[in-house]
Design a protein around this nucleic acid. Structure first.
Lengths: 197, 197
DNA sequence: AAAAATATATGCACCAAGTGCAATCTTGCA
DNA sequence: TGCAAGATTGCACTTGGTGCATATATTTTT
């Protein structure tokens, strides 16, 4: 009743964020413990303390729970790119942005999430599709950073190569079981990319 | 009865192929006429003269109808690559294989199929996922054509770039509404790819 | 502070895709 | 001709997802 600091800034919003977070957390727990396909939406809803119907007020589908973990990355990458100095070559700038950004994700989490996503074909597919979305987001940011109408096609290619290199790096990371840090693999992959031709 | 030519070579197999084909054809017709999401599996089954349950003997899901159109491409590309002369550079050989292979698909069909796939998020996602499968198939073929253990990572990158260029080219083809032939766009995209760095 | 407007939560009935299982019919082959 | 293997089907059932109406909570207006 208003005895708090005073900047509650929307109880509605706060509760919504809390509930959303609670759904993701409990769902991940259940997924990891019992498997993605084996976990029913009802279980998730009940465990999160909401009704099954309310779940769909937060996520459009079961997939979205996992996908939501991936969804911010495009914008994050775009942000990291904007922070790069303007005089770098596009591919180098994007590479550095990706390395900087990926450093922020805990390796153990990435492996766990990746395992979950690979356990279901539809989810895995949508994850790969989200790479394409990231590619487009990145391309849009690149176009703003290096505005030159006649270079658009080239920037599109750079975005494709960069996100492709990111994907291959994460695949290698998974194959190795997380033995080496992602940053190292990324730098290696990008080096090979810049070396060729 | 056996009064026919004599090489019936498995009535069972023949009927199966016929039925599968009939399912795809009638489904495509319905999809194009009424939309993918709006077409029920029951309609497809009935129109194809089979029971709903039998449909699932042929396709694991509704998605698979459309996906099956895409699924052979990886192997086709691998085959086209094997037909390339051995002394070409990997990227050039793959480029030529892709150009040769894509020339075999009628443009109008590609546009129609693409429209359908983009009308449903899950299908579109699986289509993009299938590019990654194609990439792996192509990589496997490349590894056989240019066996050099220390070059594997590099070949992986070439496969990624080639399939990425293919995807970007098809996207451009779609954006242009099929104005220019795919081969032209492909050559342009690959030229830009080889030019950069 | 009451009331009106808006957002959220939920229950319920329903739809459509997909699965397991058992029964029946077809084809291949000895 | 007879029998094994494969194909077709019906049926009951599970699960994810939607539309709609209603109740409840929060915000804003007066």
């Amino acid at each position: 009743m208003g005895v708090d600091g005073g900047e509650s800034q929307g109880l509605r919003q706060r509760k919504r964020r809390e509930t959303e977070r609670r759904i993701v957390d409990t769902a991940l727990l259940l997924f990891i413990r019992n498997g993605y396909d084996e976990t029913r939406l009802d279980e998730i809803a009940t465990a999160a303390g909401i009704s099954r119907r309310t779940f769909f007020n937060y996520f459009a589908s079961k997939d979205e729970i996992l996908l939501s973990l991936e969804s911010g990355m495009g914008d994050q990458l775009a942000g990291a790119l904007r922070a790069q100095p303007d005089d770098k070559e596009p591919l180098s700038a994007v590479r550095d942005a990706i390395v900087a950004e990926l450093a922020r994700y805990p390796a153990a989490d990435m492996i766990a999430i990746d395992r979950l996503m690979r356990s279901n074909a539809a989810v895995q597919a949508r994850k790969l599709a989200s790479y394409v979305i990231h590619e487009r987001t990145l391309f849009a940011a690149m176009r703003e950073k290096w505005p030159a109408p006649d270079r658009e096609a080239s920037l599109r290619l750079v975005a494709m190569m960069a996100i492709g290199a990111l994907r291959l790096s994460l695949e290698a990371f998974g194959r190795e079981g997380g033995a080496r840090p992602v940053a190292e693999i990324l730098r290696e992959t990008f080096a090979a990319l810049e070396r060729r031709n």
